[in-house]
Amino acid sequence: MENQEAKSPPWDIFIHLFALIALYLSIYAVVELLFSYIALAFPDPLDWQWYRPHETIRWSLAFLVIFFPAYWWSWRQIEGDLAANPGKRRLRVRTFPIYLTLCLAGLLILCDLAYLVYYFLDGDLTVRFLLKVGALLAVAAGVMWFYLTALRREPGSMPALTVAFVWCATVAVLAIAVAGFATTGSPFKIRLARLDVKRIDDIAAIFRHVRDYAREMNQMPTTLDQVASAGYMDGKPPVDPETQAPYEYRVTGPGSIEICADFQVAQDAKSIKEAYYADMASYQHGGNLMEGDWAHGAGHFCFSRTVIVGRHPNSVSSAPAAAQAPQPKP
């Protein structure tokens, strides 16, 4: 049967191309997830301030959840077709994607080892870097071994070692995906955290407008409507994005104000920056959010800031005060 001429219908081209693309995107997602886990476990102070490991984990997890099952399905389709038609074993539509994958996996391993040698010679070997090298090497070597055995074995039932590898790889991918869900948290909690970041953005804008009003008008505004009517805000004062209730604003001294809101989850400065920089539109004015310390707890929370009244800051300090402890609702 294998010596008979096998035909390659359009389905074969589709399923092999589909499997190839799904495989590469799955590998990309796995490597990105592993790198992100390593980055969280071993943070590097040289990372850029807008690096967002949790955002990378969410994107990679989305790709893995979709494309790995797609690859599994297409691979099973190819294996079943080869078992029924052994003559297709040597068709170029099957062998070309395998040889291409082997070539890319081999080049990836060589580049990985070259980076390892370079950083060794540069004296910059760290645990973080070694773990990334090991993760990339393990993924590339596993893919290469799997497809080398696929070229050598006969169509039909797979050897026990290949079956064990397939199940171990599947379990490993599932574990990586579960770790991603555990790291990023539930989608519901993420939405609440983003609503809180929007509240922080509004409060930062309120503080900035009040500061400008006090400097230009030489007096402290008693209400936010007073600031808006003077043209320092675009329309009405911002309100809570979820309840549409106005933010609490009050003057607490000759040069100090307090702005309060109800927050859903506790966030530190790092998580606020990461969530804020995840929106590239917000990144354009990210400096407004970074003025002062915006870490907060869950529930009713107030921020105190000092404001310079007038254009001569000799009497009042402009340094922001530290965030107060959560205030109970009246």
Rank of each mutant, 00 (worst) to 15 (best):
V171K: 03
P330D: 07
T306D: 15
P330N: 06
F303L: 15
S157I: 06
V31P: 03
P246A: 04
Y213N: 00
A177F: 12
V143H: 07
D112K: 00
R89H: 06
S256N: 03
H300I: 12
A169T: 11
W11F: 07
R128H: 09
A228E: 14
T101M: 04
G185N: 13
A261Q: 09
L108S: 06
D112F: 00
F301K: 13
E2N: 08
E242L: 04
A281P: 06
K273V: 08
A114I: 02
G156T: 10
L130F: 08
P328H: 10
Y24L: 15
G180Q: 08
I98Q: 04
F146A: 06
A141C: 06
A135N: 01
T56Q: 11
L107C: 02
W145H: 05
A41K: 08
A179G: 12
K132T: 02
G87V: 00
S229V: 11
F68H: 14
C111K: 01
I190N: 05
M217Y: 10
D196Q: 04
G231V: 06
A114M: 01
A41F: 03
A323Y: 03
E216Y: 04
T252M: 05
V173R: 04
P313L: 07
I308D: 15
P187D: 03
L130A: 14
C168S: 15
F42C: 11
M290R: 14
D124H: 14
R92G: 13
I200F: 01
Y147L: 09
Y115F: 00
F120A: 07
Q327W: 01
V143D: 02
M1Y: 10
I206Q: 12
N85G: 00
Y147H: 12
P254G: 09
D44W: 07
Y232T: 04
G255H: 11
D225I: 05
A275G: 15
S8D: 10
G142A: 11
P326G: 04
L116E: 02
K198G: 04
V197P: 00
I272S: 08
P313S: 03
A84C: 01
A140H: 07
W294P: 11
A298S: 14
D293G: 04
M290D: 13
W167V: 15
T306I: 09
N288D: 13
Q4H: 03
V133I: 03
S318A: 15
E291R: 13
I21N: 07
P9E: 12
Y283K: 11
P97L: 10
P86R: 08
I190A: 08
F263Y: 09
F18K: 13
L25C: 08
A179Q: 15
S317D: 11
A319Q: 13
T95N: 02
G87H: 01
D81Y: 10
